[in-house]
Amino acid sequence: MVIAYAREHLGGTVRSRQGLERDLDLRCLGFLPPLQQRWRRKPLRFWLRQPTQRGILLAGEKDPSCAGEALIGLRLALDALRDPSSGAVSIGITSAHSGEGKTTLAFNLAKSMADAGTRVLLVDADLHGLSLTRELAPQSNRGLPEAHRGTFSLADVEPVPALGFPVLAQPLDRVPRRPDVLSSRQMREMLDAARSKFDYVVLDLPAVLEHVDACAAAIHLDFFVLVAEWGRTKIADLEAVSARCDQITERVVGTFVNKVPRGSGWY
């Protein structure tokens, strides 16, 4: 009991919806359960084992009340903020630290939007991790560098047949490492070019406390979703995200908690 109390009250990590919303004054948009144990080592590779049939799912469609409804709820929350007359809405998915589930959410949010008939583009903007590129399109020869130079438009990205929506991956042999790429005028022009073809542009961004890229991109994005991991992400880290970049704080729609175990009080 003492250990449980210490973990709950002295650890300072995200463990309850009420505590998260109270401490950060941010709406909790939903949660996702942990991946099945056999998927933990290489989750994306396992998710894609049957892409032509079902697309990518999380803790298994055996529990749609958790994963499926959480994603639908997040999508509806974003729909409520969108002005259809303004074209595509850009959404940055980020977290305090890497490994907390931002790429998981970015992919599955885009999939949920596409399944609902929404025109969505998924962008691998995590130039330090490139998880989406390595798992979805490792042979890609066009991406952010070409779009940044103006030789390739986001509006020209074709849907991935196995997924049903387009993914802007990065050529692994020429990844731009400078964070100012995401804050540049060309980045703004790229997003403007996508407004006529898409309803949403979902960007998987690097972790805020590890790299400056997300802060650099904030001036061009409409909204942010901040991902936290149950039992790992500290409230202090989420507060540090707000302190580090005011532009992210001003655009954060809410938080989304990943890897929430059963029996934790969230269900």
Results as ranks from 00 to 15, higher is better:
residue 86 S to W: 04
residue 93 I to K: 01
residue 4 A to N: 08
residue 136 L to M: 13
residue 122 L to Q: 00
residue 164 G to F: 04
residue 191 L to C: 02
residue 204 D to I: 03
residue 147 A to F: 04
residue 246 D to P: 15
residue 10 L to Y: 15
residue 169 A to T: 05
residue 172 L to R: 10
residue 183 S to R: 15
residue 28 C to T: 15
residue 150 G to Y: 11
residue 231 G to Q: 06
residue 63 D to N: 08
residue 120 V to F: 03
residue 184 S to T: 12
residue 62 K to A: 12
residue 41 R to K: 10
residue 83 D to M: 13
residue 157 V to D: 00
residue 112 S to T: 14
residue 221 L to D: 00
residue 39 W to N: 13
residue 105 L to T: 03
residue 17 R to W: 10
residue 68 G to Q: 14
residue 83 D to Y: 06
residue 249 T to W: 13
residue 118 T to Y: 12
residue 20 L to P: 06
residue 22 R to W: 09
residue 33 P to H: 02
residue 167 V to Q: 00
residue 149 R to L: 12
residue 244 R to V: 08
residue 125 A to V: 09
residue 267 Y to D: 14
residue 33 P to Q: 02
residue 45 R to S: 14
residue 171 P to H: 04
residue 161 P to S: 04
residue 258 N to E: 10
residue 47 W to T: 06
residue 166 P to F: 09
residue 191 L to T: 01
residue 162 A to W: 03
residue 33 P to W: 01
residue 233 T to M: 06
residue 122 L to N: 00
residue 35 L to A: 11
residue 261 P to R: 02
residue 239 E to G: 11
residue 258 N to Q: 05
residue 109 L to T: 01
residue 10 L to S: 15
residue 253 V to K: 06
residue 233 T to G: 10
residue 137 A to C: 13
residue 180 D to P: 13
residue 136 L to G: 02
residue 264 S to P: 10
residue 221 L to K: 01
residue 95 S to N: 08
residue 51 P to A: 09
residue 227 V to N: 00
residue 51 P to E: 08
residue 156 D to E: 08
residue 3 I to A: 15
residue 184 S to E: 05
residue 24 L to V: 11
residue 44 L to V: 08
residue 64 P to H: 00
residue 231 G to L: 12
residue 253 V to C: 07
residue 192 D to W: 03
residue 176 P to L: 04
residue 5 Y to D: 09
residue 105 L to S: 02
residue 93 I to A: 02
residue 178 R to I: 05
residue 130 L to N: 04
residue 166 P to E: 05
residue 140 S to T: 12
residue 113 M to S: 03
residue 7 R to A: 11
residue 263 G to Q: 13
residue 18 Q to N: 13
residue 22 R to Y: 09
residue 84 P to I: 06
residue 115 D to T: 10
residue 177 R to W: 13
residue 23 D to M: 15
residue 252 V to S: 03
residue 266 W to F: 15
residue 31 F to D: 01
residue 205 L to K: 00
residue 238 L to K: 00
residue 118 T to A: 12
residue 7 R to T: 14
residue 185 R to K: 15
residue 30 G to I: 03
residue 242 S to Q: 15
residue 46 F to K: 13
residue 52 T to C: 11
residue 267 Y to N: 09
residue 20 L to V: 07
residue 206 P to A: 10
residue 136 L to K: 01
